Simulated assay, not measured.
Amino acid sequence: MSMNVINEKNAQFLVKKKQYHILFINSPFCGTCKVAKRMLLYLEDTLEDNKFYELNGLTAPDFLQQYSIMSVPCLMVFKDGQPVDRIYTFHSVPYLLKELGPYLVTEKNKI
């Protein structure tokens, strides 16, 4: 499985939707980004669903400025057009699962 790669225009559209969307902002020249991406791909495979969108920060300077993204990798959670969480540290897969847990549960999976 692979993340849904989107461009800046798609990202602007995506963040306005009602449900949670998790956007992974990275750079192809960033070693830490590559490690973080492997963790997220593992999570996607485990969850058996495409949960993350990927945006190359180098091609989206306006988006980075609009949301005050200071460094990559950055994982941003959006709901109703607003950032509700951002993660800059990617300690481990269990850490990410704990941090993202509330956003990964879909309405149909809630009790």
Rank of each mutant, 00 (worst) to 15 (best):
I6Y: 04
N7I: 06
K9P: 01
K9T: 15
K9Y: 14
A11V: 11
A11I: 10
Q12D: 13
Q12P: 03
F13M: 09
F13L: 12
L14M: 12
V15I: 15
K16L: 15
K16D: 13
K17L: 13
K18F: 08
Q19K: 07
Q19M: 04
Y20W: 06
H21T: 15
H21V: 14
I22C: 10
L23S: 09
F24T: 15
F24P: 15
F24K: 14
I25H: 11
N26S: 12
N26H: 05
S27V: 03
S27K: 06
S27D: 04
S27A: 10
P28R: 07
F29V: 13
G31P: 12
C33A: 03
K34A: 15
K34T: 14
V35D: 07
V35R: 11
A36C: 04
K37P: 04
K37A: 08
R38L: 13
R38F: 09
R38A: 14
M39C: 07
M39T: 07
L41K: 07
Y42R: 04
Y42I: 02
L43C: 07
E44M: 08
E44C: 12
T46W: 11
T46K: 15
L47D: 12
E48M: 05
D49Y: 14
N50M: 09
N50T: 10
K51L: 12
K51V: 15
F52R: 09
F52C: 12
F52M: 08
F52V: 10
F52I: 10
Y53H: 09
E54H: 01
E54A: 05
E54T: 01
L55Y: 00
L55D: 02
L55P: 05
L55I: 01
G57N: 00
G57M: 01
L58I: 09
L58P: 12
A60C: 01
A60T: 02
P61Q: 05
P61A: 08
P61E: 04
D62E: 04
F63E: 05
L64W: 02
L64M: 04
Q66A: 13
Y67C: 00
Y67P: 00
I69V: 09
I69R: 00
I69T: 02
M70V: 10
S71V: 03
V72F: 06
P73I: 13
P73C: 12
C74K: 03
C74F: 04
L75T: 00
M76G: 06
F78L: 02
F78V: 03
F78Y: 09
F78S: 06
K79D: 01
K79W: 00
K79Q: 05
K79T: 03
D80G: 14
D80I: 08
D80V: 09
G81D: 07
G81Q: 05
Q82Y: 02
Q82M: 08
V84A: 00
D85A: 09
R86D: 14
R86C: 11
T89W: 15
F90D: 03
F90Y: 06
H91F: 15
H91N: 15
S92Y: 08
V93H: 14
P94D: 03
P94M: 07
P94W: 00
Y95F: 10
Y95M: 05
L96E: 02
L96W: 01
L97Y: 08
L97C: 05
E99K: 05
L100K: 08
L100A: 11
G101D: 10
P102V: 13
P102W: 11
P102D: 09
Y103W: 06
Y103S: 10
Y103D: 09
L104V: 12
L104W: 06
T106H: 09
T106D: 13
